[in-house]
Design a protein around this nucleic acid. Structure first.
Lengths: 158, 158
DNA sequence: TCGATTGGTTTCATAATACTACCGATTGGA
DNA sequence: TCCAATCGGTAGTATTATGAAACCAATCGA
């Protein structure tokens, strides 16, 4: 699952801004691996668009929210646009941002299954149309057989 | 995709230790949504078990590594055991930890697709047996139709 | 027009993280 | 058997990130 070591003793954030340049997981973590970014995106998936609404929903400090939104926009996950009616600002998921849905569902499903004590109330992701829980994601080959950590490896290429 | 607001003005980490108790995504983020936990787990999936090896691979400060390993053990993601040969410590993925594989792959695949400039070298996850890239995860109904953010919602229950 | 709301920025206090040094126990080698 | 190196940490201290609060210009609604 890994990539060659980032190199011992190197600073966590080298000059190029990425903690482990070729590793796609490390880069994803650099972008959204903080306390707020994924929760901001969760709300964005739920339709939240305005600065004030994110702020109210999350209870995050405004300067931090400002910084995170700026980062997400800078990296093409959100788009900052002016609302059609009036001059209000809106933060809307880009195509790239929408593609994070799968990862967020995977994390959410793991949370549902493993991050609560038995009997502790928690949320469940539900299909609007059938009103049944969304099936658990799993990784499989084109022929339908399941892939686990044991039979995959990370290959470096361009 | 969301859960009712955590409440305005509340501290980010209330007395129960969870930032948004019923939300499974928020809880997953509480557990692994920091700069290091997912990278520690990435290496764990790759077979790393010793404190020193994690430290060397990641370049993380030892007290932080110590703290993160302790957290992951406390939450049942890793198990701390003494190696069969000798008295060395080993950190091994639990069942719960192994179930994070899907989420890590989802994040990695997103990173591969959206976090690199075109032409920039990056890693790709490969199937050991077929030596081909692992198919991209996607969320689908039992009948095979695709689910997107637009046709799911989060339901709170116990 | 006038007060409330939006979308921030700035300042300062506090919390998290990183760096360095150190430590006892264990291990490997001469 | 000794000694040096490694392992798995802990304890300061410095640096960085985060949070709370005050403030502000522009806009909106009545």
């Amino acid at each position: 699952m890994t990539t060659p070591p980032a190199g011992s003793g190197q600073p966590a954030t080298p000059s190029d801004g990425w903690s482990d340049p070729p590793c796609a997981l490390a880069r994803a973590v650099d972008l959204v691996g903080d306390r707020w970014s994924l929760l901001i995106l969760r709300d964005a998936f739920d339709g939240t668009r305005a600065f004030t609404d994110f702020q109210r929903n999350l209870g995050v400090a405004k300067n931090i929210l400002s910084d995170r939104l700026r980062r997400l926009v800078a990296h093409g996950v959100l788009d900052r646009q002016t609302a059609a009616s009036g001059k209000r600002q809106e933060y809307v998921l880009t195509h790239s941002g929408e593609q994070l849905f799968t990862a967020m569902v995977a994390l959410r499903q793991w949370g549902e299954a493993h991050a609560f004590d038995t009997g502790e109330p928690h949320s469940v992701l539900v299909d609007d149309d059938t009103d049944t829980p969304v099936p658990t994601l799993h990784l499989q080959r084109p022929d339908g057989t399941t892939l686990t950590a044991g039979n995959t490896h990370v290959q470096k290429l361009s």
